[in-house]
Write a protein that binds this DNA or RNA. Structure first.
Lengths: 231, 231
DNA sequence: CAGTGGTCTAGACCACACA
DNA sequence: GTGTGGTCTAGACCACTGC
């Protein structure tokens, strides 16, 4: 009878038992009823603890089969995806934004393929720079599907970036984010004050509203950027 | 009276109201009691829905102050961090592992600084390659704190990678992960069949056991690698 | 079919933060 | 102080899935 009773105490105890191999990887652990008796609490409390551990990728739960310690520890790490303005100001740096270019264009083939757009799809192409203390921090290359967001043609992007406008004005339901390393081409090198060929940490983002593509954006970060998380 | 009653229905309804600006960014939304009356369910059900939306970064909740729609949408994206073996085999490719080098060394200054190790700290330095269908997929450069893990000196890393050994043998409590873009130096270029100077997607990981550093690892991925998530 | 987790309820007390 | 969310309880029924 260990007699801990908050869900977070239970989480800690379970993690400790996994760490010290009381419950080794791949093993099945007692059911919720049994654990609630051991910990002297309600089953709902045990359930919350176990459910959260399963969300983190530590446990694997199946009805009837029971709860197992995950053998292949696919940990789930959470990363915060802030607004670029927030990301910059939260370091204490001053944020500045510049619109470099804004053009209505027929979507190029690679973009049509990427978003599943029809031939001759109209898009708005934007290029922007975000500065931290007047040092170029992020270059944003964005395409917006005008069919999905007709009002974007009359939007003014000279003072606020397209991301802030879109978040305020356009609802979305799905987002895909990817991270990669790319080479600085001439354009990116110029805007970010890099040499051509330097590695550039790049994130890409696509958003949809119920299956309908809204926007594709590629963000290229300045030298030395890294994305961190801890858990 | 909308009369939905499962916590996931409530989440959907709340998200829809945020999207259609019924509850615009920054606004305060009704309390749990009021919502449970509207949805015709128990407060605990509303609580779970709202708590999960807050975890995702959509809502901001404070006792007494109430629940607000987050004005600066710091969305939290979850990425799965699998074992490299799992990541490769899950694509259908064959996994192969090679130990390149294994040496006991005094920790270099940069590593001591990074991990907070004392002068003359003993470490085990490992270099490994992970292949997918015999194509080099990931180069692993790892340092293990021998003081924290004395048994590592007698471990055999010729058949299984150090990550798998560590997960099985050594408990940890904290992990820091970072992502960045680096340049391929001569060594990495050779192992990953790249050209010197090519961009390399890199992740670094440090793990601790209750404040005590266990290991530092840098993973360099082959050409074209990207990390994706969707939500 | 039966056992496990998944969810919900109605009620309660607590902790924090704003007024 | 007082209202909000944070958590817990004891019980119930349901849904999935392994046997």
């Amino acid at each position: 009878m260990t007699a801990k009773n908050s869900y977070s105490d239970i989480k800690k105890t379970v993690l400790a038992r996994i760490r010290d191999h009381t419950w080794p990887p791949g093993s099945i652990i007692p059911g919720e009823v049994e654990l609630s008796e051991e910990f002297g609490c309600a089953r709902a409390t045990v359930n919350r603890a176990m459910r959260e551990l399963a969300e983190d990728g530590i446990l694997d739960r199946k009805r009837k089969a029971g709860t197992r310690v995950n053998k292949f520890p696919i940990r789930h790490a959470k990363f915060a995806i802030p607004l670029i303005r927030t990301e910059i100001t939260s370091t204490g740096a001053a944020y500045r934004y510049t619109l470099i270019d804004k053009k209505s264009l027929t979507a190029p083939a690679w973009l049509r393929a990427r978003l599943g757009l029809p031939d001759n799809a109209k898009t708005l192409h934007l290029q922007c720079l975000h500065f931290a203390d007047n040092i170029p921090f992020q270059f944003e290359d964005r395409w917006i599907n005008i069919n999905a967001v007709p009002s974007v043609e009359h939007a003014d992007f000279t003072t606020d970036g397209p991301n802030e406008w879109l978040i305020k004005e356009v609802p979305f339901t799905d987002v895909e984010i990817s991270f990669s390393a790319r080479v600085a081409d001439k354009e990116i090198a110029e805007y970010l004050s890099l040499s051509v060929g330097e590695p550039v940490f790049t994130t890409e983002r696509i958003t949809w509203l119920s299956g309908n593509p809204i926007t594709f954006a590629r963000f290229s970060f300045g030298r030395g950027y890294s994305l961190k998380t801890r858990f």
